[in-house]
Design a protein around this nucleic acid. Structure first.
Length: 842
RNA sequence: GGGACGGUGGCGGAAUGGCAGACGCAACGGACUUAAAAUCCGUCGAGAGCAAUCUCGUGUGGGUUCGAAUCCCACCCGUCCUACCA
């Protein structure tokens, strides 16, 4: 009797051996197709949790599967190590964020190794290493030189709890809260650095067609960028003082998606903070307007309750002239107009826009119909009519009668010809705000000189190092501002006294290029990054890039996944890479929940610590369980009892593979037994090849749950025949070995142990994936269902590929079928070969 | 308000136009055991029947089809995303 499966005794042994043998070291090999498999890197928070196991172990299985299928796989790992938790821990425990972070990395590296994944640790990259962030700063500098960076004094989103500004993408939900801590953001006006991501808006949408990413992410990015086609129309304000005058004053640009409704404009509305408000407001309305502006500003500062959508606004007393018909229309201010979208001013068409309609009705403004109804109605409107497909223009002068589907083109052409406006595209996307007022990030390599203005730190002076002795006071300004040695410098241009920028870079900047850092991490250690260099060894990068398969959570859909695409496009334009998209394929795994089906959280007390399960069942069982719960993209609750199933499966495989064959145990078989075994052997061979087909397909498509089910079925068949003469035949060993090979990607330790115990000396992870022979998978007999009027009444056991005529005849001869036909006339017989016969009578 | 995804046994799920419930968990019955655990064998959608077998059954209602969990239409419910986007 061989001993039982004891994961504790084999798992550590094999991990040590793999490392000693350099089994997972990456080498370039021009003879094999390359495969760059990348998993979103973790933040070194201190402990590996269930979510890490759920994200990392299936992606490891997929990478291992590729490797067994002949790919030269690059599978690196690293740490996204800058960021707020380190700084908060620093404040709490009075320990430098650097110490806290590196201690956590040590700890997490050990925990990660327990997973038994095939990461090539020699390519590890850590974003807070100076040899990493010198390149992050280099990118900032390159982008600055290319005109993709600018500094702007403008209102920005500020998280009062994190004490820093946030990018638009980091502000979530209807209450506009901080993505990290949940605190509602407020507005502040500050000098901030931004990336011109909007320059790439079109390409960021259109490029989605060229990559194999989930539709969901593509939709989210497309909506986030929010491209809409329309027109810019220039209205002019009426000069102050003379109510009758039609003289034109200041231009007010508006963006509209419906230029064909221009004749229905009955008022204008400006965002409360629109710069022209001051100019158009009359003395009589000044007090009311100021009050409203103060109130609107307060609304930004208080948590917004967007549920209350009652329209508010105030008349400025000013008027504008509608360029298409010279009508004089009142200018209002209203907080439903956003300064951050379009031009911050709208032409209001109450007849055909719900919001304008509500506003007009509340304030008694004119509601005019300029598009006829679906049945040609031209009468007054009881509600806003948003005509898109039917109707025609009315009350619109020379355009009356133009059908709406032609209206846009005709009106825009006319506007352009008469210099009143032009075709325009508008985006919801804002430029990426990258300044953070915190110290645990890469310093922005800029110097502000009273004489020369903004001066970038010269390449040869990079990196701008973070001081190890900075205070970490969260004051709302970067703590680096209080570090005099850091803050005060000589201007590199004039040599005079100057100050460093003390803000640091958004950590999303580090993760925008980390996939490139893995290629040759920490290139030229200790050396400044040269302007004409790139952050990795070019030849190695040419071999591995771009990423073939990326996996990670969907929560980054409009943050990291958008930023890294922007980065790659900007890099391409700088000649750093020669492709358009950083990641060819993307798979989003789901979220692992607590046993109660709720998101795991300390406050709920439903956090599952994977380490407990690893020490009880072993890493292989936990890996298998993660993949067996259900489809990987679905996630789901951690069910502590269901893990038993995977554990039992591994136990059974262990004994099936290692227990002595029946004859070795002293059993004897008669000739008759052996004859019967021949049939059973063919059945086993069939099952084996059917399983190979199924599991190969499932593994390729991340369907680990059904792949595991397939292996369980094969193993169940082996268990049933363990004591029969089949277990003495060559097919038995073939099936057992193939099962062990199929298990290798998901269960790397036990498969290695079994492989060696089965008499092999080379690692199972260097073997090729077992190939299915489709001819051996064909069933000897298939069950053909016989239906009468669509209901199953009997079954036929026939040889596969049998002719339709024979099937028809045999089906009609069945007793049960004749009974249900009840002597009625046959109207039709549907035959699907190898599947069913349906006899339609009546 | 808009968008996406989903709704199948007690539970996780399988089946993407052709035998609904693979695989696993839980439960129940049995073997082994002094006993328990572990292991092994068996049962396991609901209802009727001694049985062969029959009826019903994939959120609800309709439709297409010889045939629908699967395709189409309408609705209900759930989850996530997004939101005064002009």
């Amino acid at each position: 009797m061989s001993e039982r499966y004891q994961p504790a005794t084999i798992e550590q042994k094999w991990r040590d051996r793999w490392e000693a043998d350099g089994l997972y070291k990456t080498v370039e090999d021009p003879d094999r197709p390359k495969w760059y498999a990348l998993t979103m890197l973790p933040y070194p928070s201190g402990d590996l949790h269930s979510g890490h196991w759920y994200a990392f172990t299936p992606s490891d299985a997929a990478a291992r599967f590729r490797r067994m299928n002949g790919y030269n796989v690059f599978f690196p790992m690293g740490f996204d190590a800058f960021g707020l938790p380190a700084e908060n821990a620093a404040i709490r425990n009075n320990i430098h964020p650097k110490q806290w972070t590196y201690a956590n990395i040590e700890r997490m590296r050990d925990q990660l190794r327990q997973m038994g994944a095939m990461w090539s640790w020699e390519h590890e990259a850590i974003s807070c290493d100076p040899d990493f962030y010198k390149w992050t700063q280099w990118f900032f500098r390159k982008f600055y030189d290319a005109g993709l960076v600018y500094r702007e004094f403008a209102p920005v989103d500020w998280c009062p709890s994190c004490n820093t500004t946030l990018a638009r993408e980091q502000v979530w939900g209807e209450d506009r809260h901080c993505e990290r801590c949940g605190t509602p953001v407020i507005k502040k006006s500050l000098n901030q650095w931004k990336f011109r991501i909007t320059q790439y808006a079109d390409e960021l949408i259109d490029g989605l067609d060229t990559i194999d990413w989930p539709e969901r992410v593509k939709t989210m990015q497309t909506n986030w960028i929010g491209r809409s086609y329309g027109a810019e129309v220039v209205f002019r304000t009426e000069k102050q003082g003379d109510g009758q005058s039609k003289e034109q004053g200041d231009p007010i640009e508006v963006f509209t998606t419906r230029p064909d409704t221009l004749w229905g404009v009955t008022f204008m509305a400006l965002a409360p903070e629109h710069p022209l408000v001051e100019k158009v407001t009359t003395a009589a309305q000044q007090a009311a307007v100021s009050d409203y502006q103060t109130q609107a500003e307060r609304l930004d500062e208080i948590a917004r309750t967007a549920t209350d959508k009652e329209k508010t606004g105030v008349f400025t007393g000013g008027y504008a002239i509608n360029p298409v018909n010279q009508e004089r229309i009142p200018i209002w201010i209203a907080d439903y107009v956003m300064m951050g979208y379009g031009t911050g001013a709208i032409m209001a068409v109450p007849g055909h826009d719900v919001r304008d309609f509500e506003f007009a009705r509340k304030f008694g403004l004119e509601i005019r119909r300029v598009i006829s109804g679906p049945d040609g109605e031209t009468g007054p409107l009881a509600e806003a009519y948003d005509a898109k497909n039917d109707g025609a223009m009315v009350n619109s002068g020379e355009f009356d009668g133009t059908p709406v589907d032609q209206a846009y083109d005709k009106v825009v052409a006319w506007l352009e010809a008469n210099d009143m406006g032009r075709r325009a595209v508008n985006y919801r996307l804002r430029d990426w705000l990258i300044s953070r007022q915190r110290m645990w990030g890469a310093p922005i390599p800029m110097i502000l000189c009273p004489t020369c203005g903004i001066v970038p730190v010269p390449y040869e002076d990079l990196p701008v190092l973070l001081p190890d002795n900075a205070e970490f006071k969260p004051t709302g300004e970067s703590p680096l501002k209080y570090h005099e040695g850091f803050r005060f410098v000589q201007c590199p241009q004039c040599g005079g006294k100057a100050e460093r920028e003390t803000d640091t870079l958004d950590t999303f900047m580090c993760s925008s290029w980390y996939q490139y850092a893995y290629i040759t991490p920490n290139k030229n250690p200790g050396q400044p990054p040269a302007a004409d260099d790139i952050p990795w060894d070019k030849a190695t990068g040419d071999y591995w890039l771009p990423v073939d398969q990326y996996t990670g959570g969907i929560e980054h859909a409009t943050m990291h996944l958008l930023y890294t695409r922007f980065f790659t496009k900007a890099m391409r334009d700088l000649g750093i890479v020669n492709f358009d998209e950083p990641m060819q394929r993307l798979f989003n795994q789901g979220i692992i929940l607590g046993p109660d089906g709720e998101k795991m959280s300390k406050s709920r007390g439903n956090v599952v610590n994977p380490d407990e399960y690893v020490s009880k069942y072993g890493a292989d069982t936990v890996r298998g369980y993660m993949m067996f719960i259900g489809p990987w993209d679905l996630g789901g609750p951690w069910d502590p009892s269901a893990i038993e199933g995977v554990s039992r499966f591994l136990q059974r495989v262990w004994s099936v593979a290692l227990e002595p064959s029946p004859t070795e145990s002293g059993a004897t078989f008669s000739d008759a037994d052996r004859e019967q075994a021949a049939d059973a052997a063919r059945a086993l061979e069939r099952k084996l090849h059917q399983t190979l087909i199924k599991v190969s397909d499932d593994m390729l498509n991340f369907r680990f749950n059904t792949a595991i089910a397939g292996m369980m079925e094969l193993n169940n068949q082996l268990v049933r025949q363990k004591d029969s003469p089949v277990a003495t035949l060559p097919i038995w060993d073939e099936a057992v070995e193939a099962l062990v090979l199929m298990m290798a990607p998901i269960y790397p330790h036990i498969s290695e142990e079994l492989w060696h115990r089965l008499g092999h000396s080379e690692s199972v992870h260097l073997q090729s994936w077992p190939q299915a022979d489709p001819t051996k998978a064909i069933e000897a007999e298939v069950t053909v269902v016989v239906q009468v009027n669509g209901k199953v009444r009997d079954k036929l056991l026939v040889a596969p590929g049998i002719g339709e005529e024979i099937l028809r005849t045999q089906a009609l001869a069945l007793d049960n079928v004749r009974k249900w036909m009840d002597g009625k006339a046959v109207r039709k017989i549907v035959v699907v070969p190898d599947r069913l016969v349906n006899i339609v009578v009546g």
